[in-house]
Design a protein around this nucleic acid. Structure first.
Lengths: 103, 103
DNA sequence: GATTCTTATATCAAATAAGATATAATTTTG
DNA sequence: CAAAATTATATCTTATTTGATATAAGAATC
C-alpha cells in the first residue's frame, strides 16, 4: 500500500494497524475503502458544480453541515447509505453513483 | 406506482403510507429502493451460482444465516454497507455491484 | 412420510451511526 | 487585514443496525 493511500485511509478514521500495514487490507476491505473514497470525491465535485455550501446541501439532505463535511472526507462514521442519499440529494443519478463505485 | 412494486416494498418492511401511496415516493427514495432491490437480487444470484447455502455465505461474511436472509430480501433493517460487504464476500466485483446499482 | 437441510421470522442486548449543537480553523470577500 | 462565510472537529443524546439466539416454515433427500 502506498504511503499516500495509507494517509488518506487513516485521515478518514480507518485503522491500519501495524500488522495490517504489512499484510495489507483484504481485497474486500480495500474495495470498500475505494468505494467510499470515490463516493466522497464525487459528492465534493457535485456540490462544487452546484456552487452550494455544505450547509445548503445539508438542508436538502435534511442533515447538518458537520455531517456533510464527514461524508466528503469519507469518514468511517458515515454509512454508505448516507453517502448515497447525500449524492442523490446533490442531484447525482444512479448511473453516476455506479460509476463512482466501479472506479 | 404499480401494485406489484408496492407489495415488494412493503414486504421488505418499507412503509408506504396511505398518503404516499398517492403521492408516490420522491425520486431519491425510489432510487434507493431500486438499488437495494437490485443488490438483493444480485446477492441471491451470486449465491445460487456458487451453490452455497445462506449459512455458508454467512460464515464468509462473518455474520449469521438470518441476516443473509434479510439481505436477500432487501429488508429495511439491513444497511447498504452490509449488502455490499455481503456481495463482495460472495465474490462480486466492484463492477458487478455498480451494474446492480445503476440498473 | 420421516429426517435432514435450508430459509424465514422474531426478540433482545450491544455496537454503530445519526442528529443536535457548540465552536475552532480556514477561506473568501469587502 | 478585518469581517463574514464556510468548513472542520468535538461531544453528547437518540435512533438504527448488528450479532446472537431460538424456532417456525418449507424443501430436498432417503
Amino acid at each position: 500500500m502506498s504511503n499516500d493511500k495509507r494517509k488518506r485511509i487513516e485521515a478518514a478514521g480507518w485503522k491500519v494497524g501495524s500488522v495490517d500495514e504489512f499484510l495489507g487490507l483484504t481485497p474486500e476491505e480495500s474495495a470498500i475503502v475505494d468505494m467510499r473514497f470515490n463516493l466522497a470525491k464525487a459528492l465534493l465535485e457535485k456540490r462544487r458544480r452546484l456552487r452550494i455550501s455544505q450547509g445548503t446541501l445539508a438542508k436538502r439532505v435534511k442533515t447538518t453541515q458537520p455531517r456533510i463535511a464527514l461524508v466528503e472526507k469519507g469518514s468511517a462514521s458515515v454509512s454508505l447509505d448516507f453517502m448515497v442519499r447525500s449524492l442523490l440529494a446533490a442531484g447525482a443519478s444512479k448511473k453516476e453513483i455506479a460509476v463512482a463505485i466501479a472506479r
